[in-house]
């Protein structure tokens, strides 16, 4: 007998799933910021929130299904969250003329070197994943 097609969730259920996900992710980001402020050394709040959410997922306090859709949506829009900084970077006044050219050249060359090092080491240590 053919399997019944899985019922698609309605708009209301989908919206609630995303809202719950955003609320949980925002709460962990906020909590990460609070914890980071108490630390005696610099540690970014979102990274603390990341570690706290991972611990909550491993312990089962938070179910992956609760945050999966919202986190996938936010990951797809990551470029948008950097867009204002990228636009404002073009107005950085201390880099002009030859210094700006040296700056951009160093950034592009440096990115290539790091990409090369990371990619080649990864490929060497995980050969099966590169086939």
């Amino acid at each position: 007998m053919d399997a019944q097609p899985e019922a698609r969730p309605g708009l209301r259920a989908t919206a609630l799933t995303y809202l719950r996900g955003f609320a949980i992710l925002s709460a962990f980001a906020f909590l990460g910021g609070v914890v980071a402020q108490q630390l005696p050394f610099f540690f970014p709040g979102p990274l603390v929130g990341f570690l706290l959410l991972f611990a909550a997922l491993v312990s089962g306090v938070i179910k992956r299904a609760w945050v999966q859709d919202a986190s996938a949506f936010l990951a797809k829009q990551l470029g948008l969250f950097f867009l204002p900084a990228a636009v404002l970077a073009t107005r950085e006044g201390s880099l002009r003329g030859a210094e700006a050219a040296r700056f951009v050249g160093a950034c592009v060359a440096g990115q290539f070197v790091v990409f090369f090092v990371a990619g080649r080491i990864h490929r060497a240590l995980f050969p099966k994943l590169s086939r």
Partner: peptide, 23 residues
Amino acid sequence: PHATRPLAWLLGPAVVGFATQLF
């Protein structure tokens, strides 16, 4: 800079969300 602060703020939940992929 002030107008786009909500977008910069959303970077926090976006980074936190990568915990699901790690999990």
